[in-house]
């Protein structure tokens, strides 16, 4: 069943008094219990897309298109409905837990606030969050609840943030680079908790990351976004064997990996572009090694190819060559 439907989303933000395009065109669906990884380089508009889902946007933002949660239009909600939606249906996990948790209030106050705010009894809320803290591996709970954020490590704070998100029993988690700010060993640990809890509870998740491999590991499907445009969407299971967009292939190739040592072969040339910088043609045209004239003049629409959707004029034609993992692996083997 479709839980979240993002249809032709566009977003403009005010920058120095002028509207600037941040998201061109993103169409995406999430089923109940499904995890979708939203992947792309920094500045692509991943955070803004996830924020559009909860309508947490900067002042003066202009939203186009539609975001429907369980059949209800999010942009059309009034203040009251929006608060109810935020306090029951969807929970956001931010990247930087240290700045996103109020430094002068206790961990307990942070964890129980949303529950108490929506009318639950304080004592019940404490019971709920205490159990949750244990499940994400935080012990000595009564003591922790009385502590302040500065007394906890970064990894612990992020687990507190995860517990807070789970506490409201949402149907959808929005996780915006939840482990990027942590050191590598902590990243794995925190990610494991998030993944286990999400699966155990059957929650849907929109997982924002710049790390395609990580997204493929914890999500069911992957959506790749470049300069505010959705360029490819595919099952996570096919990412290593068959990607259809040159940008996705580039992302895959630019990440060093323990299992695929030929990693840096095909790093993407040029710098990432912002949505407002791109010309009318394909957004990736300036950095794509496979450009033809058509790419410069016409923006490719999303087309269904197999189980994937891709916005590339030459998708069918390039299909075999793009599967970086296998290709470079074979190269190595022969050499």
């Amino acid at each position: 069943m479709t839980l979240l439907e993002i249809h032709r989303l566009s977003l403009d933000l005010e920058v120095d008094g002028e509207l600037r395009r941040i998201i061109h065109d993103v169409t995406l669906e999430l089923d109940d219990g499904e995890a979708v990884g939203l992947v792309g380089e920094s500045g692509a508009g991943k955070s803004m897309t996830s924020r559009a889902v909860i309508r947490l946007l900067p002042r003066g933002a202009r939203l186009g298109g539609e975001v429907e949660f369980d059949g209800r239009s999010v942009p059309a909600m009034d203040a009251r409905a929006l608060r109810a939606y935020r306090s029951r249906d969807v929970a956001m996990i931010f990247q930087d837990a240290r700045s996103h948790i109020n430094p002068v209030r206790t961990i307990g106050a942070f964890l129980t606030e949303a529950l108490v705010e929506r009318g639950e009894r304080k004592a019940d809320a404490v019971t709920v969050v205490s159990e949750l803290l244990e499940t994400v591996g935080i012990h000595d709970v009564p003591h922790r609840l009385r502590q302040y954020p500065h007394e906890l490590s970064g990894g612990m704070l992020q687990r507190v943030m995860i517990a807070a998100a789970l506490a409201i029993r949402p149907r959808l988690l929005l996780a915006d680079e939840p482990t990027t700010a942590l050191d590598v060993t902590t990243q794995a640990e925190v990610m494991a908790h998030l993944d286990r809890q999400r699966r155990g509870r059957g929650l849907a998740m929109l997982f924002v990351t710049h790390d395609l491999e990580l997204a493929a590991a914890v999500c069911d499907r992957i959506a790749v976004i470049y300069a505010g445009c959705l360029v490819e969407e595919c099952p996570a299971s096919t990412v290593h064997d068959r990607v259809l967009h040159p940008y996705t292939a580039g992302l895959l190739a630019s990440r060093p990996s323990a299992t695929r040592r030929a990693a840096r072969l095909a790093a993407i040339p040029g710098r990432p572009q912002a949505a407002y910088e791109i010309a009318p043609g394909c957004p990736f045209v300036a950095r794509c090694p496979y450009v033809v004239d058509l790419c410069r003049t016409t923006r490719p629409p999303l087309r269904l190819i197999g189980a994937s959707r891709v916005a590339c004029h030459r998708a069918e034609e390039l299909a075999g060559q793009l599967s970086v993992g296998r290709f470079s692996g074979e190269e190595r083997a022969r050499a």
């Binding site: 939606y85 935020r86 700045s99 109020n102 949303a114």
Partner: peptide, 11 residues
């Protein structure tokens, strides 16, 4: 950021 968090939770 803590204000943003509170808003995102429907406070």
């Amino acid at each position: 950021d803590q204000v943003e968090t509170a808003q995102s939770r429907g406070i």
